[in-house]
Write a protein that binds this DNA or RNA. Structure first.
Lengths: 186, 186, 186, 186
DNA sequence: TATGAATGAGCCTTCATTCAT
DNA sequence: TATGAATGAAGGCTCATTCAT
């Protein structure tokens, strides 16, 4: 979908239907026939982005017990890679969070399965002493997501306040490793 | 400034000059006389928000050596409180980061001083074993900021994916404590 | 024809070709093949409505000399019934009269025959003293048509200005009788 | 108001806001500032037309007992003149009656006063034998209105079916007189 | 024959910005 | 200094009509 491009870069109100139609090499009436209005289309794009991350997360189901020692690093690099390859997500997420209205009702069920799987690994890791016992999985996961999201969502501003250029993958990789250390025991 | 209200809630493009003028009980001529155009005004508001956080951070200069053991918790609760009391910031920051153009050139110098001060405390903490030696202060601080920002900026969506309601201060407090544990050694 | 429904309720400009095609379970190509364009189709519908009233009026040819004493009542109830059963007519007539362009060229010849027949009965009635000698048939007929048309065409507004509800058939019947008295001698 | 011209000739949906603005030598934003939207403006115009007829009817309050013998003729010629001088009314009325939505809530109270006055005269006329005892005032008035409305509202079509040209005032005057005879006793 | 898509224009409505008083 | 009006350009959405399959 070419609408993703427009919406992710300009948001619901900034995007122009004409532009979308042109990029999609479709014509407006087709768009309105399918989606009724701009807002619906935005919702579809948003849902698509959520599906994208959900699908992408399926790979995490491959993680097993032996990955527990490097779980944090793997998760972090997974999300950072995702954001790097698929910048639409954090942008659409940000637009949606800034908007008063909610445009996506149901979040993909698929994510819950992955989270459950990771939760089990985390619990095992806690037993083995890889993760802190007094930190819940939700906190841990939230931290990982926050950090990876912020890495991209705040690139422009943080680049100036922290004097770092996250667009270089080396810098990013170093961050992943450092954050892995931060999040893990010892 | 009443423009802050409009811009923070609707963004540069969503905000309406008429609305701003009306709320400010000023008239449009005044606005255009002072700021030339909407974009400039947005920049001023943004700068104002950055000054706000910078000023607020001055309080952190009070932190001293004896606070090192609870530094993480203090910093986190500082930022979380700030976001809770001053929701304009994360919103303006998010709008700015989503926009192609940069509307603020210079970030307040004041922040650097605070960061330097905190950096010294962190270094001492590393010596004393409160913080991990292999995690830089930048990483540490970035983590704190990311987590506190994400707590608010992603409230709508995360409420659904993680089933948590961050609007309750209890939940937030618990998070602060958990994250403090996560970020600290042992 | 399903176009009648659309045109009569929304007029030439308000009606939508897509809607008509859908209701007719035909496809647009068919419509354009037969009628060239929307306006022609409107003309056909209009003509159809005129034929409908003309055909309906054929029943009036049954009226004979013995009906002269109740001619007014019979004619009035005929037209009122027609409008009640066939609301398309007054609406299409109203649309047509409001539009600058004329969409129907020829009015059905059949009506003239009926009018001539009624004219003869009226003349006889005048001789016999049933109808006023100084009121022409045209005036008389025009009055009947005006009253029955207005009864329906002005229902919404008159309901409020005259506090009457013509949708109730009782009220209508009473009106027919009263108007018969009004139009007849003594 | 120039909107009256547009709306009365093309109806709510046929009228063009640009056209109205241009004719009014105003600009669109003024229109939208005052009336919010096209429909409201239409409602105002409609209300204005109702006020016009109501105001015009005030003249009928001058009619007194001595006018009773020629009441019908006076009323008819009043309405016919009004329609001839002010063609906006019947058109706006017709548009409104064809439209599903109601655009005017309250009809002018002033009309009721006039109607009451005329009703009293009619009652006296009934006593004196000028009007039929078994025909109510409502019927009588409705008839007058219907006839005068139809005279204009159906001019285009009736011109063809009845072969009469109501645009000539002579023809109209003759009609007024004939209808007066029709409506009056003897 | 029937269908989905395309076109191109038009219309209502909204803005940022500027004039004029 | 403050206010109402003006401007000019969009932008969302809709339609009648036509193509192409």
């Amino acid at each position: 979908m070419a609408a993703r491009q427009e919406f992710s870069s300009k948001g619901l109100h900034g995007a122009r239907v004409d532009e979308i139609a042109e990029r999609a090499e479709a014509n407006k009436q087709r768009i309105y026939a399918y989606y009724q209005n701009k807002e619906n289309l935005f919702g579809e794009v948003l849902a698509h982005c959520f599906n994208e991350i959900a699908q992408n997360e399926q790979a995490l189901l491959q993680l097993g017990e032996r990955d527990i020692p490097v779980l944090t690093e793997k998760l972090l690099s997974h999300y950072v890679d995702f954001h790097a390859r698929y910048p639409f997500f954090w942008r659409m997420l940000a637009w949606e969070n800034l908007d008063e209205k909610r445009h996506v009702k149901t979040l993909p069920q698929a994510r819950q399965q992955v989270f459950a799987h990771l939760g089990r690994l985390y619990a095992q890791g806690q037993e083995r002493g890889n993760f802190k016992k007094d930190v819940t999985f939700e906190t841990y996961l939230f931290g990982l997501m926050a950090v990876s999201f912020f890495l991209f969502a705040n690139q422009k501003s943080s680049a100036e306040s922290l004097k770092l250029d996250f667009s270089k993958s080396k810098v990013r990789d170093q961050f992943v490793k450092e954050f892995a250390r931060l999040f893990d025991v010892a």
